[in-house]
Amino acid sequence: MAKQISVFLENKAGRLSNVTRVLGDAQINIRALSIADTSDFGILRIIVSDPVKAYKILKEAGFTVSETQVIAVQIPDSPGGLASVLEHMADENLNIEYLYAFLGTTENDALVIFKVEDIEKAEAAFKKKEIKFLDENQLYRL
């Protein structure tokens, strides 16, 4: 299980740069990032080096922020790696809300962040198939 920081963004010039500047000035490193957007607004989802601090400073800077529980799954960095994981999740009836790839990788694995409906069920399913996922400390330290 890992903490993702989610930020509400209006579709206005400069909003994303404001968020990233606030984080940068606080010496917080962004490890992974994705943006979901509609015509009116966007939701920025980030994995950062210090989620507790990031949440606090973004809130102080006036953003609408929330913490979300996600799983960072290690997937073999080879053709078909993601497909096998997704097939297994389908077999286990795990609903995925969204997913995005991590910027860095560990050794020979790629990292993918999953937001699932039932996080405990997902972790149990991954353990069964020996699919590796990172704990919080491993993730933030990358």
């Binding site: 989610s6 509400f8 509609t38 939701i43 609408t64 929330s66 809300e97 937001k115």
Partner: peptide, 18 residues
């Protein structure tokens, strides 16, 4: 305004609220 109370990381939820 979207307050923390109604904010969600899922687009679907915010669209439902809208």
């Amino acid at each position: 305004e979207v307050s923390e109370e109604i904010f969600s990381d899922e687009v679907r939820r915010l669209e439902e609220l809208g």
